Simulated assay, not measured.
Amino acid sequence: MGLLALALSLDHVPATDIALTVPFAAEGPGPTFNTLGDVEGTPVVDVEGAEVDPTEGNLNMTTVSVRTNMTLAQALGRWIGTGDTLVPLGQVIPPDVSEEELRRLNESAFVASEAAATVAAMNHLGLPTEVVVHDLVPGSAADGVLEPGDVITAVDARGVSQPGEVQDLVRARAAGEKVVLGVRRGERAFDVEATLGDNPEEPGSPQLGVLMTSQPAGDVSVDYNLNDVGGPSAGMMFSLAVIDKLSPGLLNGGRFVAGTGTIAEDGKVGPIGGIAHKIRAARDAGAELFLAPAGNCSEVARVDSGEMVVAGVATLDDAISAMQDFSAGRDVPACR
């Protein structure tokens, strides 16, 4: 069986074995990672170029493990013996998407989540950001024009500081139109021109073909160091870790807090999939408080969280307030 944690990492099976597998995937609790801790000696959230405030306790992001390439006996064993849920394989691996395309989509979602987490944290802290080119789509408008590591400073002479601003300005144009990008590459600043392509996922929509991330402007840098984990649902916990490291005091009160949720640049927390499995994972890991997206609260009500308190949060500020209230012994907005 292939074991996946958010990101899809498919096992190849011999052709003679394919007929023995079932078209289902088993979803269950995946590993949790303390965003305030280390992985293989490297900080999960690495902040450099600024004084980092000491942290304590946990801010754990949670994952869903997905098993594929199962025989009928293995699938039934997961369903009966572990509490995993079985879902059609097409919900996990779209039939018209190759393994490499799926990996790229998963990576794109994770990088976008990291960028949004950084922007949301910087906005909360009142610190400026800038847009960085992480990767380019081969054959796209930006391929051969931009390079990974370039900083995009403007689109058609309009200054930009967040990936979402670049996307909005590009989407306001049409495929085939030219845009002028302000770029900083090392110590050089210059303009480049690119002809927008047609987005294959949204025919008729323009595509620049840039996978963007965000970094604090100036000397501060934020890097996220989790391999083989993808998707957007770690965003809120990443953002909270950055805020904790760059602000005085203990954001979590030194307690064991876990959670999940997408994060937008403006700090809004979005719902995710697999909430029941993530709550089980956090409960079993010993979390005291779980931060769940408010949009998932109807599902949360059906999950046994044990002694762990589950708070419903709609924004980054809600999550911070819930941790403060919990640490002070006050009631939190229960997700029930």
Rank of each mutant, 00 (worst) to 15 (best):
V229S: 07
G204I: 07
S205G: 10
G176W: 09
A189W: 06
S214W: 02
V222D: 03
F190Y: 14
V210R: 00
V210E: 00
E193L: 11
N227L: 12
S221W: 09
G209I: 06
F190N: 07
L226P: 02
N227K: 13
P216E: 04
V220I: 13
G230R: 02
N225L: 01
G231D: 07
Q207D: 12
N225P: 05
E187H: 12
D191H: 08
P203I: 05
R188H: 08
P206C: 13
T195M: 02
V222C: 06
S205V: 09
P232E: 06
V229T: 11
G182A: 06
G230A: 12
D198E: 14
E177S: 10
P232G: 10
E193Q: 13
P206N: 02
D219E: 14
M212T: 04
M212V: 01
G186D: 08
G176I: 09
L226H: 00
L211F: 06
G230H: 03
Q215I: 10
E202L: 15
R188Y: 12
D191A: 13
E177M: 05
A234H: 03
V179I: 15
G230I: 07
R184K: 15
S205I: 04
E193F: 11
G176S: 06
L226V: 12
R184F: 11
G186V: 11
D198L: 13
G197V: 10
N225M: 05
M212A: 07
A194K: 01
D198P: 12
A194W: 03
S205A: 15
A234V: 00
A194N: 01
V229M: 08
D219K: 14
G176L: 08
S205N: 12
L211D: 03
D228L: 15
G204Q: 07
G197H: 06
D191W: 03
S205L: 10
L208H: 05
G182P: 04
G204K: 07
S233I: 03
A189Y: 11
M212Y: 13
T195I: 13
A217Q: 14
G204N: 04
A189K: 15
V229Q: 03
L211C: 08
M212C: 03
P200T: 09
A194G: 03
D198W: 08
D219C: 04
A234N: 08
V183S: 02
Y224L: 15
G182T: 09
R188G: 06
G218D: 08
G197T: 09
E187F: 06
L181W: 05
Q215Y: 04
P206A: 03
